[in-house]
């Protein structure tokens, strides 16, 4: 059976949700006639037309704010950021309005929007286009943040996000869109992956590698190498959802392996892994045989130079080295 690519899985989820609910509308730059800058929305405009798949001007604060306003009247906009880095020109709308309006209205309003787009470095596009703001948004109560690593989870989480009645920011990855390592054998039946559920992607006994997004793929490759070359049986935990967070799966894994290395493309200071580390030391301290270590991006703006950027973000050799430091 042919595997479905991450990009195709997202496309299928969007297509099905357009069919399932006529309030769903896809809005973004180049999402319609151009078929998406990364082809995630390929063919949807042709199938669904101008009303359901809408090209916008380059105007993120305007169209995302507009989507938030429309959602208050029951429309369910799925808005693409060509890069999640572009969220920074729309932060007032994405944080002050989307995240706070339910609270400030005493629960009388809700905001069922999805903002989706790639949140990753590693493509040599320089610092402005390589931000990974999942930690930034997960810091904001009122928002939900998911970061699928595989086509299966991208499909299931996108469907859950669209059906959810709170704002959900779906962090994708340009390097995963066409990556065979992230492709999945998808069932023909519709299914969802619940937001707030992590998954053990590989069972192991010696150390827990805990990651989200593309770092899960890196962790799986590192686990393979650790097994084959070092005789270390690593478990890989995929967070899938950052907020809400499945603490139970994380703690269960650490209680089993007694060691944790966190792999996180965020910069280290207050990255997603900072929260995971805090949780482990607070709730599984007695299970730990070693300090919790992290492999994050090297703490500088994303460098352009292609070979250096590959070292700046988490990669297999950095993970293998870090695991060995556990002793």
């Amino acid at each position: 059976m042919a595997l479905t690519l991450y990009r195709q899985a997202l496309n299928r989820a969007l297509d099905e949700e357009l069919a399932n609910d006529e309030q769903v509308v896809i809005i973004g730059e180049e999402v319609a006639e151009y078929n998406g800058a990364y082809k995630v929305t390929d063919g949807l405009w042709k199938k669904w037309g101008d009303k359901r798949v809408v090209d916008t001007p380059i105007s993120e604060a305007g169209f995302i704010g507009m989507g938030i306003g429309a959602s208050m009247l029951g429309v369910r906009p799925v808005m693409e950021l060509m890069f999640f880095s572009f969220a920074y020109v729309a932060l007032d709308q994405m944080i002050n309005n989307a995240a706070c309006i339910r609270y400030m209205s005493g629960g009388s309003i809700n905001c069922p929007i999805v903002v989706r787009g790639p949140s990753n470095g590693g493509t040599s596009v320089g610092a402005t286009h390589s931000h990974t703001p999942e930690n930034l948004f997960a810091n904001v109560p009122g928002l939900k943040v998911v970061a699928p690593a595989t086509a299966h989870d991208a499909y299931g989480l996108m469907k859950s996000a669209i059906r959810d009645n709170d704002p959900v920011y779906v962090m994708e990855n340009t390097l995963l869109y066409g990556d065979s390592a992230a492709a999945s054998d998808l069932s023909d039946e519709e299914f969802t992956v619940p937001i707030g559920s992590a998954e053990v992607k590989k069972e192991g006994t010696d150390v827990s590698l805990i990651a989200h997004g593309r770092s899960v793929i890196v962790a799986l490759e590192a686990a393979k190498q650790l097994g084959e070359e070092k005789g270390i049986n690593a478990e890989v935990v995929d967070l899938r959802s950052i907020r809400p967070l499945d603490e139970e799966t994380i703690l269960k894994s650490v209680e089993k392996t007694n060691r944790a290395v966190l792999i996180d493309e965020n910069k280290p200071f207050c990255g997603v892994s900072s929260q995971i580390a805090a949780t482990i030391q607070e709730k599984a301290f007695d299970s730990l045989d070693a300090p919790v270590l992290r492999v994050t991006s090297i703490d500088a703006p994303a460098i352009y130079s292609p070979p250096l950027e590959k070292e700046q973000i988490p990669n297999v050799s950095r993970v293998v080295d870090m695991v060995q430091k556990l002793g």
């Binding site: 009303k51 305007g62 704010g65 989507g67 306003g69 429309a70 009247l73």
Partner: peptide, 13 residues
């Protein structure tokens, strides 16, 4: 932009 969105919602429906 929220006001704009209310107008969008009206027109959409």
């Amino acid at each position: 932009p929220l006001g704009l969105g209310l107008a969008y919602g009206l027109k959409y429906n």
